[in-house]
Write a protein that binds this DNA or RNA. Structure first.
Length: 746
DNA sequence: AAACTCACTTAGCAAACCCCAG
DNA sequence: CTGGGGTTTGCTAAGTGAGTTT
């Protein structure tokens, strides 16, 4: 549990809550709805929750209290602590903490004791789980952790990977492959014999799956009251639009409608009867689609089963690949079907028609010795087949909307290749523990450097470190206008005397980041200085971009980039929160709540949001109603108890409305009352959590930022079954972490 | 050193699925 | 046995950051 040291954090929160969005009037519909959301997020805690103190502290806000200046001077000891806690330390807790050293760092946990095994061997066992698909059922009951015999392959590979990053030489068409084919088929080669950039030796797969060709339905839409004939191609696109009838895209976004109309008009041709989108009525098509959907839902159980099985069968062919002889699951192997582009936020291309991808758009990557998969569309052929062993993709095509971007087909999350890089990511982030003290000292020093570029690097690094901001690469004209740290505009930050900064900008996916933070005085001063004499739309960091920043970070620690801070911050926060004392006799539910609370804190740091579900309010009031009912019951029970004690008779129905034959004894009533009270408490707790999480997305951090070994270790220490924390997919992805030592610390 | 290319991770939403109270 | 609510899975957009080209 988080100590309740946040009375002032609450103050801050309400402060943030008061901030209006006046400055951001130009919000477009979608972004505007987000804004509401974020506000709710920031206010969270000021609403009814009674025991807020233990439950509700958006980290970002909590951090406002921080006086990081201390960090750099006096506390190497603190450096491996999450910001949240470092920053919040009261003198007392700080003293406490100093005594509580981390248990001897189980450096890289990865089983130094374990005898080295050949790559092929170890990966076989690691993959056990992923292969279940075929012949599952049999060992489903065995906890996953036990099914994994050889938990990690990192150790062996790590040695050779260090420092290899600089040497990547993309292999050009035609010149590659040859070396590859000269490799022996055997996979029983120690990875250390690898040169460090090759991702595989042999690669076999069946290519990608294409959506079926369009089948015209012939339903006529209306134009100015009259039915219209459309060619299949025209109808296909009209249908895409029709089915989106009641989305915000169609309803609220002019860009979407315009872009759609422009593209569709081209398909309609010069002198088509349809001249304007406004005159179009797509409802007949919409309704036909809805009916189809309904029909599909109405299929009998067997029919559905059969259809499902058929689908599985078709997919089976594409679902697997063999990498160095090992069977691996393939990720998304379907090419994207034609659709209307749904750009997030205020995307200038939103609504454009994304054309159908054909085999001639697709490049296949496959082992030199493997047969190039047969093109699944008769009469067509692949654009190209490559044999590039320095990359992990199996296929790609260029995105019709943004021809500079590629869409790739990769192996699945539980594949060795993905697992390996996931492990590397976390080890890299853990390394930051050893450097963070110096890094913080350095940037603190540079706040006052004479070199303006240096000061900008220092301040940016500070923000990335403290607020877990993204790097902020340069973006093109043709994309939604969002920013990260290096691309912040003057208008996104408001300096509030004496030393606070109010951030308000749209980040990745046009999710609003809104937070007011107390910062070190030099940072505050510098921000004001960077803003001086500039207009709102000017770059805050005019001497800086993400690659310069990363170049600098790279000097501070090998492998360090801006995003590593996010991983580091997320994981170390979880680790820290989970290692605070837990109530001795906490039951399973409480323990799970502790974990989820920690998870939530991380999600808030990383600003992982979600839209409030449409039915949220409704559901809440339903719950309220239920609780109200229970309360009434409780009251009745209590009066009954009084009566019973006085020996008087009770009504013929009990509090639950059931008929009864005899009066309950006081003891029975007491028991019922206790039960009811507990029920009410549980429901209230559930409601609070629900309300609390309505705008917070826990999944993203769990999947991408939190070292699974922290969770595994915590589960082991607290006798919590890992299945409580990870679902099957997650267990599969994190299988490698199941053997983590209970003492593992990030 | 800016602009561009490429590969790979991270992200939220929506459809599908699943489970259980009524 | 049904509907609705939570959970999982699928989907694809949108980032990061490397390396190359100009």
């Amino acid at each position: 549990m988080v100590p309740s040291t946040m009375s002032s954090a609450q103050e801050n929160r309400s402060f943030v809550a008061q901030e209006t969005s006046d400055d951001f009037e130009d919000e477009k519909p979608i972004a505007a709805s987000r804004l509401v959301r974020t506000q709710v997020l920031s206010i969270r805690g000021s609403h009814a929750n009674s025991d807020d103190s233990k439950d509700d502290k958006p980290i970002a806000t909590a951090r406002q209290l921080v006086k990081p200046s201390q960090d750099s001077e006096d506390d190497d000891d603190d450096d491996d602590k999450p910001l949240s806690s470092r920053l919040l330390l009261t003198p007392k807790s700080k003293g406490e903490k100093r005594k509580r050293k981390r248990p001897l760092d189980h450096k890289a946990d990865s089983s130094p004791k374990r005898p080295k095994v050949s790559h092929a061997c170890s990966s076989t066992s690691t993959l056990k789980i992923t292969e279940e698909k075929d012949d599952d059922e049999d060992d489903d009951l065995i906890p996953i952790s036990q099914r994994i015999k050889e938990p990690t392959l990192l150790t062996e590979k790590k040695a050779m990977k260090v420092g290899s990053s600089s040497t990547r030489k993309p292999i050009k068409k035609g010149q590659n492959g040859l070396k590859l084919s000269s490799c022996p088929k055997s996979t029983n080669v120690l990875p250390s014999s690898n040169d460090g950039q090759k991702k595989w030796k042999t690669l076999v797969h069946n290519g990608v799956m294409f959506p079926p060709p369009y089948e015209p339905h012939g339903v006529k839409m209306m134009y100015e009251g009259k039915p219209v004939d459309l060619s299949p191609e025209q109808e296909e696109v009209a249908t895409m639009y029709a089915v989106m009838k009641d989305t915000d895209y169609v309803q609220k976004k002019q860009t979407f409608r315009n872009n759609f109309w422009n593209d569709w008009r081209k398909l309609l041709g010069e002198n088509h009867v349809i001249r304007r989108l406004d005159g179009c009525d797509f409802t007949p098509i919409y309704e036909w689609c809805m009916k189809e959907k309904e029909n599909r839902k109405q299929m009998s159980r067997e029919e559905k089963k059969a259809a499902g099985a058929e689908k599985k069968k078709q997919e089976e062919k594409y679902a697997w690949a063999f990498v160095d002889g090992e069977k691996e699951i393939v990720g998304r192997f379907r090419v994207e079907p034609p659709a209307l582009f749904r750009g997030r936020g205020e995307h200038p291309k939103s609504g454009k028609v994304k054309r159908r991808i054909l085999p001639s758009d697709v490049t296949i990557n496959i082992g030199q010795d493997a047969p190039v998969p047969e093109c699944p569309v008769p009469g067509e052929r692949w654009k190209e087949a490559r044999h590039d062993d320095t990359v992990t993709w199996l296929a790609f095509w260029t995105d019709p909307i943004t021809p500079k971007k590629f869409k790739y087909v990769y192996l699945g999350e539980s594949s060795s290749l993905k697992i390996e890089s996931d492990q590397k990511k976390y080890e890299n982030a853990r390394m930051l523990k050893d450097y963070i003290g110096k890094i913080r000292a350095d940037y603190s020093r540079d706040f006052t450097s004479k070199d303006c570029a240096k000061r900008q690097i220092a301040v940016a690094t500070y923000l990335i470190d403290k607020l877990a901001l993204r790097a902020g690469n340069e973006k093109g004209e043709e994309e939604a206008d969002t920013v990260g740290c290096c691309t912040l505009k003057v208008e996104h930050v408001k300096a509030i005397a004496p030393n606070s900064l109010e951030f308000n900008f749209l980040g990745k996916d046009s999710i609003r980041y809104q937070n007011t933070v107390e910062v070190e005085v030099p940072v505050y001063k510098e921000i004001r200085q960077f803003q001086a004499g500039k207009r709102g739309g000017d770059d805050l960091f005019d001497k800086l971009d993400a690659s310069r920043l990363n170049a600098h970070l790279k000097q501070q620690m090998p492998g360090l980039t801006a995003k590593v801070f996010r991983t580091y911050n997320a994981s170390i926060t979880l680790d820290d929160l989970l290692n605070k004392e837990i109530k001795d006799k906490a039951d399973l539910t409480e323990k799970v709540a502790v974990y989820n609370h920690a998870n939530k804190e991380v999600a808030i740091i990383c600003n992982h949001q979600r839209t409030i579900s449409k039915s949220h309010e409704e559901q809440m009031s339903k719950l309220m109603e239920k609780i109200g009912g229970l309360r009434d019951n409780l009251k009745e029970l209590k009066t009954e108890l009084k009566r019973a004690k006085r020996g008087k008779s009770q009504p013929l129905t009990d509090a639950d409305g059931k008929k009864r034959k005899r009066n309950s004894t006081p003891a029975e009533l007491e028991k019922k009352i206790a039960q009811k009270t507990a029920d009410i408490e549980n429901m209230e707790m559930g409601m609070r959590t629900k309300e609390d999480l309505k705008t917070v997305a826990l999944g993203t951090s769990k999947l991408n930022y939190l070292d699974p070994r922290i969770t595994v270790a915590w589960c082991k220490r607290n006798q919590v079954p890992i299945q409580k924390m990870f679902n099957t997919t997650q267990l599969r992805k994190f299988a490698w972490a199941m053997a983590a030592d209970p003492d593992f610390r990030f």
